[in-house]
Design a protein around this nucleic acid. Structure first.
Lengths: 204, 204
DNA sequence: TAAAATCCGTTGTAATTACAACGAAAATAG
DNA sequence: CTATTTTCGTTGTAATTACAACGGATTTTA
């Protein structure tokens, strides 16, 4: 992906190519397996994955590394840490040879339109994260599922709605086992609370 | 709380009183029980609680209202919705007679220093929320607890550290039952994985 | 200081869930 | 079209957790 293609597609720039000047952007190439960012680092730059991809890695309770997310082409990363000024709690490692564009957080801030875009992006993400926490905080899986589905229905605005996850994806989102999720969905269907087919749901 | 006292203490203003001019701020008083904001509303203003307090209310799976948070004196609210431009998913209701200062989001955005402060606040919150999701996503309560405690230790930077919650607070944060949390903590202590006394913990 | 309220660990029980394994259905690849 | 892979619901079991109840300890209030 070219720099200008990225800028065109990135919600941070909103397609405005002229905002790119004066950002002190630097491009850097990482070989497969290379450490792009390490947990504990302070990072003052926002990363943009131009080419290739990387994994976000966190230590689990045993101290073993677990991949918690993947950064694909065209995606930004480390933005929250860069703007918050707190050390990274995760590491980022190239899952293949990749090209990263680094954008200096301070310089982004200096351009009002970019700052406004960034603010909106963060605010949106905040709302999403808070919503997910709301679902995850429920005590039982059934409550988690219903909390999520009602939220999805509200977002869709229609009685019948589709969810953007397959079963495994929904299970990951809700922090549960896939088969347990399937079982709960079936139970709700049998109880007559819910109807669904594939990713299309309807709450009765 | 006076307006200027709020501005002095608010991280949004960073103590800079001069930033307050031109914000089209309005003050409004609500009687106890009055609806300050309703779920579904679009809100273009950030609320600041000058006097009194309010509850954040969400509908649970049965459609019954549940208080999910409290807004105390000096706290801001609705900021994420205002900047994101998405409808509220919660309602806000005065728990007592209260005075709210409304700050127009667009006007805040127009002052670069305020925008920068807001960005930092959102970025920080983003990191916190993501971290909490990390804990909540664990499958078992033991894993949730350890995930949280390791994170707390990392933040504290010392082997023995204190957590800013009582047991009920920690249970709420981790989305579990208080007695179940106590039981898991005791089990971990007996296993020799953990030592604690009140809010002081040490991972062995 | 005494009384009241809150905090916290324990116990027992019923319900829930993780986990592994399996097979049918659907999607994808060849 | 057939073979392969992926997705998803089901089942059974062991482990975990919610929930209610209780009592001791600590803290707060009067």
């Amino acid at each position: 992906m070219e720099i200008f293609e990225f800028i065109k597609k990135s919600p941070l720039f909103g397609g405005a190519e002229d905002l790119y000047v004066g950002l002190h952007a630097k491009q850097e190439v990482f070989e497969k397996g290379a450490r792009i960012l390490a947990a504990g680092d302070f990072c003052r730059r926002v990363g943009a994955m131009l080419e290739g991809g990387a994994d976000v890695i966190r230590e689990d309770a045993n101290g073993d590394p677990v991949t918690v997310a993947h950064i694909g082409e065209g995606e930004m990363f480390a933005e929250a840490f860069a703007f918050a000024g707190v050390p990274l709690s995760v590491s980022v490692q190239a899952s293949q040879r990749c090209a990263v564009l680094w954008l200096d957080a301070q310089s982004l801030l200096a351009e009002p339109r970019l700052a406004a875009n960034a603010l909106k992006i963060f605010a949106r993400k905040n709302v999403f994260l808070t919503e997910r926490i709301e679902h995850l905080s429920r005590r039982t899986l059934e409550a988690k599922v219903l909390s999520y589905l009602k939220s999805a229905r509200r977002t869709a605005g229609t009685e019948t709605f589709r969810v953007p996850f397959d079963r495994q994806g929904l299970a990951d989102y809700l922090g549960c086992d896939r088969s347990a999720l399937s079982a709960v969905l079936s139970k709700l269907k049998k109880k007559g609370v819910l109807d669904f087919h594939k990713n299309a749901f309807r709450i009765l």
